[in-house]
Design a protein around this nucleic acid. Sequence first.
DNA 1: CTCGTATTGCAACAATTGTTTTATAAAGTA
DNA 2: TACTTTATAAAACAATTGTTGCAATACGAG
Lengths: 290, 290
Amino acid sequence: MSHGDALRDRIIGTYESMPPQLQQAARHILEHPDEVALVSMRELARNAGVQPSTMTRLAKFLGFDGYEDIRAHHARAIRLRVDGFAAQQQRSSDSGEGLAQQMLYSLSAQINRLAEPASIARLEAAAERLAQARRVYVLGLRSCHLVAWHFHYVMRLLGERTEHLDGLAGTIGDGLMRAGAEDVLLAISISPYARHSLELAQLAREKNMGVVAITDSEVSPLIGIADEAILCATESPTFFHTLSPALAVSEVLCGLLANRDRAAALEALQKADQHLQGLNTYSGAIPKRQ
Amino acid sequence: MSHGDALRDRIIGTYESMPPQLQQAARHILEHPDEVALVSMRELARNAGVQPSTMTRLAKFLGFDGYEDIRAHHARAIRLRVDGFAAQQQRSSDSGEGLAQQMLYSLSAQINRLAEPASIARLEAAAERLAQARRVYVLGLRSCHLVAWHFHYVMRLLGERTEHLDGLAGTIGDGLMRAGAEDVLLAISISPYARHSLELAQLAREKNMGVVAITDSEVSPLIGIADEAILCATESPTFFHTLSPALAVSEVLCGLLANRDRAAALEALQKADQHLQGLNTYSGAIPKRQ
DNA sequence: CTCGTATTGCAACAATTGTTTTATAAAGTA
DNA sequence: TACTTTATAAAACAATTGTTGCAATACGAG
């Protein structure tokens, strides 16, 4: 029960009742579990000092259809170790899980991966760069609009430093008219990259503005332009890309920025609250209809 | 980059000068480094959406003899990671983790919790209700705007059944003018609940429309109104609420809806793709400025 | 437009894969 | 001892692998 590894336990449990050659093969697998997924069966057999057929026989002895099941098991172990955290979840009935479950597990893992040190460092560097800017122009087109909107909405609650290039009525980029070297463009774009986004980012660069990017790959066109870039996963078991990790990035950036001066943030939020309350914006229950 | 990964840097460095197919292959390898050693080249190519020969060509482009060199490199990376496991052990325990890490761990857990059976059941019920509607009106104000926008954006790629009540220029609710009992309102609202959202939901109810809600609590005012409701966490270690779980819910709903008729979805997406391509919407690299 | 080049998809290729079969050897039983 | 059962090795097998050559296509320079 030490590893929660069913196959491993099965091998150990039945080891005594195996013929000598199977024992030798089984022992080798126990002692080099990672090799199983990394080399061919024939090579593994050679390293174990047994015949290739012995590996197949071992698989059948353990109740599998063939060697492929053993390899798949060890490959999965490696992949899980990469996620590190996915081990927390009992992915019990494997392929039996529905699409919804699959999507949510995947999302959870993708966001968890954003917490890796390398990623955290990038987040903090980006926050630093944004904090220093006089103004922050936020750009996110098409699917990325929601991320840009979120960032702008939250930062507006904190102050006036942010401007959203939403491109309403074809005004995209008008906001950059008075932008300069002291300002920063926060550009959000994932594959397929909206041409306008790239053009505007390039324009910002030419104006000597700072550029911070939220994008999806080390080879995204934004990487070459940006001073700081944050990478987020976008893959999904559906037809679409996922934007949840990108939104999480935006939320973290907002959190980090607000955290730099907690007192000021708190005050700004109270002011915003007061304002909205004056407008009777919120309600705790279904209002009576007039 | 501090990865100390020569091959990775090589790919990134030469990426720009690769032909499109090679880029696609290279990109897939960058984003799924572990898969390289765990699956066959043909399968990797399939997952990357390229021909098998492209992988060989990529290897030669990078100066190797063949694909085997690429695989060997990634296999070595995995083996190293297994050994150097102890060195990486620095996680958790130290409660000194920064705000960013805290936020991301929390988010990951919140989304993971959405995958619980009770939650999944609600998601599927909601998707079912939405699928049956003649039209779906999407409503999300203030912070929830991004979720509504996402749902509408994605569903619009699939068809014309969705309408977004964005309230631009004070037109909130105008869209419901011709809505009736065969239609459904998808209302997204979290505490503090926007008064307008609740009013509109109530109006929809009075018009005998169906109501599906994405909200944050069993005691949300929307619960009494909605036929189906999905609950998502919103707590965050920051000053703000988080919307990532709500966005995840929207993504799952879109995924489930698209999944009901995969063929139709695929066709619709291809049509959308074609349309956007005709408009030259996307670009793979920084366009030359005129 | 036309040509020359570069890129791509396709199909054939030998090599290698995991498996199965067959024959031999060993071990156990009466 | 002879005979059955079990375990192993070797060889044959179809399937799949990574690679290559070639024809079709897209692309850019003139």
